[in-house]
Simulated assay, not measured.
Amino acid sequence: MEMQGVGLKVFRQKLATSLEIRGQLQVPARFSPDRGSRSAERVEIPIVSRVALAPGIPRIDIQTEIDNRAEDHRLRVHFPAPFTVDAADYDGHFEVVRRPLGVPEKGAAWVEDPRPEVPQRAFTDVSNGKLGLMLANRGLPEVEVIAAPAGAEIALTLLRSVGWLSRDDLPVRPGHAGPGFETPGGQVPGKWVFDYALIPHAGDWQAAFPQAYAFEAPLRAMTSGLHAGERPAFGAFVSHTPVEFVISALKEAEDGRGWVVRGYNITAEPIEVTIKPWWAFAHAERVNLAEAALAELVPTEDGSVNLAVGAYEVATVRFVV
Rank of each mutant, 00 (worst) to 15 (best):
E105L: 15
K106D: 10
K106M: 15
G107Q: 14
A108D: 12
A108L: 14
A109R: 15
W110K: 14
E112D: 13
E112C: 12
E112V: 11
D113A: 13
D113R: 14
P116K: 14
E117N: 13
P119V: 03
P119R: 08
Q120S: 05
R121G: 01
A122C: 05
A122V: 01
A122F: 00
F123W: 04
F123V: 01
F123R: 02
T124Q: 02
T124H: 02
T124I: 10
D125C: 15
S127E: 03
S127C: 09
N128Q: 12
N128W: 10
K130P: 02
L131A: 15
G132L: 08
G132N: 07
G132P: 04
G132M: 07
G132T: 06
L133I: 08
M134C: 06
M134P: 02
L135G: 00
A136M: 07
A136R: 07
A136H: 05
N137V: 03
N137D: 02
R138K: 14
R138T: 02
R138S: 01
G139Q: 03
L140G: 04
L140Q: 05
L140S: 03
L140E: 00
P141L: 05
P141Y: 05
V143W: 03
V143S: 04
V143D: 02
V143N: 02
E144S: 08
V145H: 04
V145Y: 01
I146Q: 15
A147T: 12
A147M: 11
A147E: 13
P149T: 09
P149L: 08
A150P: 02
A150K: 15
G151D: 03
G151T: 05
A152S: 14
A152Q: 11
A152N: 12
E153A: 03
E153D: 06
E153G: 01
I154V: 15
I154F: 05
A155N: 06
L156E: 04
L156N: 08
L156I: 10
L156C: 08
T157S: 08
T157H: 04
L159W: 06
L159A: 04
L159K: 04
R160W: 00
R160D: 00
R160N: 01
S161A: 13
S161D: 03
V162P: 00
V162E: 00
G163K: 02
W164C: 00
W164G: 00
L165A: 09
S166W: 08
R167C: 03
D168N: 14
D169K: 05
L170Y: 05
L170D: 04
L170M: 09
L170C: 02
P171S: 10
R173K: 14
R173F: 07
R173V: 11
P174N: 12
P174C: 04
P174G: 07
G175R: 13
G175V: 08
H176A: 12
H176S: 09
H176I: 00
H176F: 12
G178N: 11
G178S: 13
G180P: 12
G180F: 06
F181C: 08
F181A: 13
E182P: 03
T183N: 10
T183D: 09
P184D: 08
G185T: 13
G185C: 07
G186N: 04
Q187G: 01
Q187F: 04
V188W: 02
P189W: 10
P189L: 15
P189G: 06
G190M: 13
G190T: 12
K191L: 14
W192A: 14
W192H: 15
V193G: 07
F194I: 06
